[in-house]
């Protein structure tokens, strides 16, 4: 029987990412300002010119799409829908992209914008957690 624990963790961590990015999208669209649980520089980073990696597509939307796809992939693993090796490859490819993006955004906060955003760091931490769980799954298989 398949050990569901790592997939439950992947699902949980990715779902937290969905929640976080959906909050950021709503706060941006409502122009209500961003709650910044730690520090005060969230708005500085989130309204900077680096807030969209692709033209006309904000980073929060890209993040939401990534987390939704990843949550769905974790669910598909558990449900046994699709080829596990293909699902795993897809998960690894999109996670590699997300890791690269997170590294770039963390660098931008540190060296270019010179301000830290709680939500961006939380998202980067979420991606690192996903990386660790995926490593664990790969070493176990």
């Amino acid at each position: 029987m398949v050990n569901l624990t790592p997939y439950a963790l992947l699902f949980t961590v990715a779902a937290i990412g969905v929640s976080e990015t959906s909050y950021l999208i709503r706060a941006r669209r409502a122009a209500s300002g961003f709650a910044c649980p730690i520090g005060q520089d969230c708005a500085v980073v989130l309204t900077s010119k680096y807030n969209h990696f692709l033209p006309f597509v904000h980073n929060d939307i890209l993040g939401l799409i990534f987390y939704l796809v990843f949550t769905a992939l974790a669910a598909l693993f558990v449900l046994g829908i699709g080829q596990p090796t293909e699902l795993m490859l897809l998960a690894e490819v999109i996670l590699a992209g997300a890791t690269l993006m997170s590294a770039i955004f963390t660098y931008l906060q540190w060296r270019v914008i010179k301000a830290w955003c709680f939500w961006c760091l939380m998202s980067a931490g979420t991606v690192v957690l996903l990386d660790l769980i995926m490593l664990k799954i790969n070493f176990t298989i």
Binding site: A8, F11, A15, I16, S19, T71, V78, L79, G80
Partner: peptide, 17 residues
């Protein structure tokens, strides 16, 4: 809210399974 949401989501996956 997030904790309860994840519980419901995961429960739904397990029931589908």
């Amino acid at each position: 809210r997030i904790g309860l949401a994840i519980t419901f989501l995961w429960a739904s996956i397990l029931i589908f399974h």
